[in-house]
Design a protein around this nucleic acid. Structure first.
Lengths: 238, 238
DNA sequence: CGGGACCTTGACCAATATCAATGGTCGTGG
DNA sequence: CCACGACCATTGATATTGGTCAAGGTCCCG
């Protein structure tokens, strides 16, 4: 919850009473094991979930086994706030690492939309930030080279972890396998491996034991054509 | 406006008083010429715009000229409702054909969030539908072949036009150039051309004079691995 | 000590991009 | 009414990126 407030506070003021209203809407905290499914595509949802710890992926599957990760969530992210409105998701949500999620029943979220218009707008904002992230991924998949794509994703991670105070632009957690990174980038694990070697040889990054280290963020950002504008890190009234 | 109601009514009941509240929030209708810019990336917005006629694209540009269309809007779509919350967009919005857009000042939308919680949720829903569309595009760019990608986009168009009553699953407007289609799919115009020939030779589609004709929707959907679930065409309380 | 998951490497291949030309269509002005 | 130019579609030859297949190698954990 605190992490969500930190994330929202990077974009607007979050008054104390709204923070309390949010807190009041939460029910239990549920732990998941690595690889466990949190939400299955198409099933009717009655709660949305906020990630407290761990890493979560939204995964879309094609019938012949092809898979694409469409978003990776870090602590402080609502992993399926959109299920409040969509009711049924178009994708699975799975725990990449062990994770803990706090439930927000839709009933309580509905009450928030009836009593807390500004808080409602902040939650709505949170889903539009997801949308902006999606658009950036479309660009990466459509028009960036494999190396730019991987580098861009890493830059995104560093800044998002920085926002919630769990990393900075030099280092952040990145507990993924190369296979999973490939699924996020729409590449082959073999090719991801080659791209990583290239980036490592150029001294742009290190990635070991689930932790990413980038000695010179600006250089990686430049090589990857990374522009942080899509993160909408501007504090103003919403 | 009627088109927006039709689009929303495909997902929930829209009471008459909410329709009126929406209508009251609109101000003027603005015409745009083909190719004209509607919104420039990064500029502060004070209104959102609903498309009444024509075709609109959201375009992201890289500094070296690469361009990616991240969404195509048909009548009945809010082209930048997300600017109500983001205030500054991460992309340009341009008119592909001559178009007319109705303005909804953010001030009026804010009032809606304060007085019409259910209508607010419907508008929020509308932006999450955009998000679901984005995810499908990520999959297309990352894990579908060029032919599947193009075919998938065409299926999406047919169904979206059907929802607002401006087409059906046999035919719909598609006033794009091959270059623009290439920018939407992250392909080269040359390759898009070859893919189109292939699809045409297999009798899957015709596309002339800005109109798409698909003799057998199910066959194209199957070939393209199209699953309409992401369009969330389910009528239920939100 | 053994097995499994993950990473790495090499050889080869396929999908798509690039480059360069040609031809069609349509609106406009002479 | 015709000629021109602009934009768009098409085609062929060739290049490149990233995929496929297959074989180790490493590391961790039971």
């Amino acid at each position: 919850m605190d992490l969500l407030v930190r994330k929202l506070a990077a974009r607007d003021v979050v008054p104390e009473d709204e923070q309390q209203a949010l807190r009041a809407a939460a029910t239990e905290t549920v732990p998941y094991a690595a690889g466990e499914e949190v939400v299955r595509e198409g099933e009717r949802q009655t709660v949305s979930r906020l990630l407290v710890s761990g890493l979560i992926a939204r995964v879309k599957l094609l019938d012949d086994g092809r898979r694409q990760i469409t978003e990776l969530h870090i602590p402080g992210d609502f992993v399926d706030l959109h299920s409040f409105l969509l009711k049924r998701l178009d994708h699975d949500v799975i725990a990449v690492t062990p994770a803990r999620l706090v439930s927000y029943p839709h009933e309580g979220l509905r009450k928030i939309t009836e009593q807390w218009p500004h808080l409602t707008r902040l939650l709505w904002l949170s889903t539009t930030l997801d949308g902006a992230g999606h658009r950036e991924w479309i660009v990466s998949a459509g028009r960036r080279t494999a190396a730019e794509h991987v580098g861009h994703l890493f830059c995104e991670f560093l800044l998002r972890y920085e926002v919630v105070g769990l990393g900075d632009r030099r280092r952040c957690p990145l507990p993924l396998t190369q296979q999973q990174l490939a699924d996020a980038c729409g590449l082959t694990p073999v090719h991801v491996n080659r791209v990583l070697q290239e980036l490592r040889h150029e001294g742009l990054l290190e990635w070991r034991a689930g932790e990413l280290t980038v000695p010179d963020f600006d250089r990686l950002a430049q090589v990857s054509r990374f522009d942080p504008a899509f993160l909408n890190l501007i504090r103003e009234p919403r």
